[in-house]
């Protein structure tokens, strides 16, 4: 399911409170360099609603590569914390409202493009 960036907060609130999607699995980023877009995908499941354990919804949003700013969903799902931090450092996507966007895995003095962007080429390639 792809939603516009402006609506993701309301949609995620509705998923959590209205439909019972309370267990965030992971946050993934995809660099669609040909379309000049980043995609951020939240995978959310439900544990409290019986019969929904085998169901995962993917909540995606797309932002232009030149200005990648999306709202952070940490206050909806706390579990998004480290996943959003990782997506931030690996793609350079800015999660607005995230309490701490410092580097999680990369060295503090990383001085190059975010490494999972398609235009970053690993040394020796």
């Amino acid at each position: 399911m792809t939603v516009p960036v402006g609506a993701i907060k309301e949609v995620s609130m509705f998923l959590r409170d209205g439909l019972g999607f309370d267990h965030l699995k992971t946050v993934s980023g995809v660099d669609w360099i040909a379309k000049n877009e980043f995609e951020v995908v939240y995978f959310v499941g439900s544990l409290s609603k019986p019969g929904m354990e085998d169901f995962v919804i993917s909540l995606a949003e797309r932002v232009p590569r030149d200005d990648p700013v999306v709202p952070s969903l940490v206050d909806v799902w706390v579990a998004a914390d480290y996943n959003e931090r990782e997506t931030h450092e690996m793609f350079g996507i800015n999660f607005q409202g995230h309490p701490n966007q410092s580097h999680l895995f990369l060295p503090e003095d990383w001085n190059d493009l975010p490494p999972l962007r398609k235009d970053y080429v690993s040394p020796g390639r």
């Binding site: 992971t26 993934s28 980023g29 660099d31 579990a79 480290y82 996943n83």
Partner: peptide, 14 residues
């Protein structure tokens, strides 16, 4: 094109 690995340890680290 993209291979995202999501491991249980990272979830439990939080």
């Amino acid at each position: 094109y993209r291979l995202k690995i999501s491991t249980p340890s990272l979830k439990n680290l939080r």
